[in-house]
Structures are given as C-alpha cells and as structure tokens.
Design a protein around this nucleic acid. Structure first.
Length: 477
RNA sequence: GGGGCAGUAGGGUAGCCUGGUCCAUCCUAGAGCGUUUGGGACGCUUUGACGGCAGUUCGAAUCUGCCCUGCCCCA
C-alpha cells in the first residue's frame, strides 16, 4: 500500500494508529532486522532535527555541548554500586576486539555518568571551575527485555540529550534541578505538548540519585509517557569518582551533581499528542515543511499557474518560511492527502480561479479554509500560523484535561485510571503504594505535582486513611 | 519473565494440513508511454517474492530442527 493512500486506523485504536503513522508519514522504518533498532526516514529525522534544534537553543543558554565516547571500561562502570544495580541487566558488552578477548570488557553506554565523571574528576580542581554544565546528544544502548516500540522503548536510543552539571553546594545543585525542570517545561511548551511534572517515588528514582523529578505527558490511550527526567545526584557520584574542588578557604570539598535527560520520546509525544485520523499534525516550529503550495493546473493555463505558484514560493521563502511547491503530476486531492499525512501546517492552493480574482486559498492542517488577497498574503500567513499553533495547544490541553480525574477511593481510582491519570491522596509509604498499585492495576507516578491543570491538596490516604497528599496514579509506557 | 499467533514482491493476500499441475493473484506499489488535474484520475506495456541457516527428498513456499524478526495476551 502506498504510504499515504487509504485510511489510517482511527486514533482511538492508538497502537495500530501509531505503528502505521510512523511509516506512512515517513518518520521511522521499523523493518531494520535487529530487535529494538529502527531507522529514521529523512522526513522523520528532519522533524527530530528541528525539535532538537529548539532544545539545543535552550541548553546553549547556559550549558556547553560536549561529546564523550560510547565505550566505557568495566572497571569504571562497576564503581557506583546503586547505579550498577539499576543498569547491569541491560548493558551490552563488547568483549572481543577482532579475534582477541579484551582484558577489560567495554560497556556500550546505557547512560554516560560513568564515562563522564572520571573525566570531571580530572577537570575540576577549584571552586572557580564550578558550576560546570555540559550536555551531549548521543546514542545509548539498553538491552530492553520488555516489548520494544519505535521512539518509545528502544535498544538503541538514538537521540539521548543528557546534561551533567557539577556544583559547589547541595543548594546550588538543588537549584539547578529546578532550573532544568523549568527548561524542560519550556521545551515542551514550545512543542505545544502539555506535561505533568512530579517527583518519582523513591523506589522509582534514577539509580544513584537522591531524588528524581519527571516530566510526563498523557498519550491518546490514557497511558503516561515519561518524556524527561531530572535527577539530584547529591554527592554519591562525586564520592565514587573523586570529584573534588578546593574551596575559597583552601579546603578540599566533594562536589554536588545533577543530571537530566530527554530522548526521542519527545518526538513520539509530538506525533501522538497532535496527530489525528488523517495523519501527523506538526507545530510550525518543528514542521520540516511549513507551507506547501499546490498548483491547480488546468491544461491550457498550465504555465500561467506554475509561474504564479513559483513567484509565491519565492515570496514565502523570502519571508523565512520553509516552503515546498508540489508540482508533481498528480491530482490535487491526492496531494492534499499526502501533505496532510505529513502534518504540514498550511496548504496554499492556487489555480486559474484564484489568479482571475487575485486571491489565494489557504487551508490549515486543522481544517480552516481562508481566502487571502494575493497581495499581502505572505504577511497574513504569520498570523494564520500563530493562530493555528494556539489552537493545537488548546486542543492538546483539553485532551489532557479530559484524561485527568480525581478520586477519593480505590474503587473510583481503579475505574478512572482506565481513562487516564488519577489524582489521589497517598501517605507516602511503600506498603500503601503496593496496595494501591495492585488494587487499581496501575503505578504510582509521583507526588509534588506541578501542573496548572491539576489542583493539589492534602487528605486521607486512599489505602490507609492516614495523612496523605496528592499523588498521580497511571498506567504507564 | 510466561503464553499464543505470524513472516510469500513496496503493500495486501491465496497456496502449506495432503511436497510436483505454480508461469500465483490483487493493489491506492515501482518503471515507461499517452491522456489528465479545484479532494485519493484513466488506459496500455512492464517489474518484482516465498525471513535466514541447516536437514529430509528425485523434487521444498509446503515437512523437520535451530535462529532472526514482528504482533497480541498475561505477569
């Protein structure tokens, strides 16, 4: 079947919809013959590039970009006990070089703490070296045993943006955690992806961290997708890797650290949050093509239409839009479906009728049809796209609001969690968490909720009736 | 982690149990030519596959074993 013909599965049938849209919108080819590894089509990669460009611009405000090696010697990898425990079951090992067994096996990084921190130990001497804030965008490998899923659960994460910061004091590190949370919020705001931020329960925090703050969004099937995490590492790693600095009084001190990451799950979120039954819907900021011009070619006026369309294309390009003139030999309707599948925010139609009346027809991806005067059309498109952007933001926020419920009892929670995220009061004990998770067949996501779509409060724990506070319960990816 | 189902051309399928009659078939697929173009055009010509490795056999898409990959359900 050609990639963009025929109907997509309905979005309510989310699993099938997601699998099909990936290749029909030319995002990922899942046919690579290794489990859990997928190939970016150029179009999908162009979306990735734009989204990560936004992320890098945010990071570059006060981080520097770096690049560390993929291979980590076992001797370094095995130093931090808690960290090892969290990752050792899913590490790929390189044990041979050519025909020789390696003396020291090399891990393919599942994350880069143990690659970066030995170097930090060498780099950091003085309090004037701090704070140090670096990030890199790299691939990482995890031998996932659960069901793999493109962009969501991968054995090779191709686009892991990980930041690693070092600070003189615990307070500064804690402040950096907050700054990173704000930064991630800003990133997802700019993708029009609404998020819920919360602190993960202790048993679910990053291996080796004091605490973890996570950014989640809600998928169309009501399950949550973790699309960013920020970890307070305290001085665990600095004590293991001997990251010390000489303070102003000439004394050696252990440093405090944070790390935080975002992966291509951010792209899965864009696709899933905005997409509809016709295909992708891309925010203008990440759309590889923002404006597509479809000329309506009628036999004898062919040259006239094409030259007008070409002139229009130049005007849009001159105004800074990424624009494509689709002059392929196809029926116009077929082109409409093609570009709708790919999520192009705005389509311009220009034909003999428009030339005669000196107008053009603009249609937004969410179906608003606007007739514009040919003169000044390009300027008009700025506000059309701004309004489009606002509409998909509001639609996404509404979809999230519809997936959030408040419950007072386990029975209510069990029912409501089928639809999405449930806010309940929980006392914070692991015993009660287990009771809740078993009773409602879902997970405790986190507490200390930050979301302008959720009101938090204190109240009796749904499991034991003791003093509790608002906590998120959800089915998760 | 446990269980089940499946893999045939770019996509969708038949054939498999009962090995040969198979030059499979369909398409919104590709290539080419022509006519077309305001919401998925049409005609003609043509291209292309049995997931991999081994085994059984005169002969394997079909039977056997192992592997790889995908999907669904349960933990």
């Amino acid at each position: 079947m050609e990639e963009d013909t025929g109907a997509l599965p309905r979005k309510e049938d989310f699993s099938r919809w997601y699998n099909e849209i990936l290749w029909r919108a030319k995002i990922m080819d899942v046919r690579y013959p290794v489990k859990g590894l997928y190939v970016w089509y150029p179009y999908g990669f162009a979306i990735r590039r734009r989204a990560y460009g936004i992320l890098q611009d945010l990071m570059d405000r006060d981080h520097e970009e770096t690049m560390f090696p993929l291979l980590i010697p076992e001797t370094e990898f095995m130093k931090e006990a808690t960290h090892i425990k969290g990752f050792e079951d899913e590490v790929y090992w390189v044990t041979r070089g050519g025909k020789n067994e390696l003396d020291v096996p090399l891990a393919l990084r599942p994350t880069s703490e143990t690659a970066i921190y030995p170097m930090y130990s060498l780099w950091i001497r003085s309090h004037t070296d701090l704070p140090l804030k670096l990030y890199q965008i790299v691939n990482t490998f995890r031998y996932e045993t659960k069901h793999t899923r493109p962009l969501i659960r991968l054995r090779e994460i191709t686009s892991f943006k990980e930041a690693h910061t070092v600070h003189a004091t615990r307070e500064e590190a804690a402040a950096q955690v907050e700054a990173a949370v704000d930064l991630y919020k800003e990133f997802y705001d700019s993708l029009q992806v609404p998020v819920i931020i919360s602190r993960r329960p202790d048993w679910d925090k990053f291996p080796g961290a004091d605490y973890t703050i996570a950014v989640d969004t809600i998928m169309p099937d009501g399950k949550t997708l973790q699309i960013g995490t920020v970890h307070m590492l305290g001085d665990h790693f600095s004590r293991t890797y001997d990251i010390t600095y000489e303070d102003a009084n000439g004394e050696q001190q252990y440093a405090y650290q944070t790390c935080y990451g975002i992966s291509e799950r951010s792209i899965a979120a864009i696709i899933s949050v905005h997409g509809d039954d016709k295909g992708l819907v891309l925010p203008p900021e990440v759309a590889p093509i923002q404006v597509v011009i479809v000329p309506i070619i009628i036999g004898k006026r062919r040259d006239e239409v094409l030259s007008t369309a070409t002139a229009l294309e130049e005007e849009f390009r001159g105004a800074g839009f990424t624009v494509r003139l689709d002059d392929r030999d196809m029926r116009p309707g077929a082109k409409y479906y093609h570009w709708e599948m790919r999520g192009v925010p705005l389509r311009i139609e220009i034909g003999p009728r428009d030339i005669d009346t000196n107008t053009i027809v603009a249609v937004t991806r969410d179906g608003q049809k606007i007739k514009l005067d040919r003169r000044g059309a390009v300027e008009g498109v700025f506000s059309i796209l701004a309004e489009f952007r606002e509409r998909i933001w509001q639609a996404a926020r509404q979809a999230m609001a519809d997936r959030i419920a408040v419950a007072e009892t386990l029975e209510e929670t069990a029912e409501a969690v089928k639809n999405g995220v449930v806010v309940v009061h929980w006392c914070g004990s692991q015993e009660c968490a287990e009771k809740i998770e078993i009773a409602v067949d879902a997970s405790i996501l986190g507490s200390d909720i930050r979301s302008d779509q959720i009101t938090v409060s204190d109240g009796p724990c749904v499991a034991c009736g003791g003093k509790g506070t608002s906590t998120l319960v959800a089915r998760t990816y």
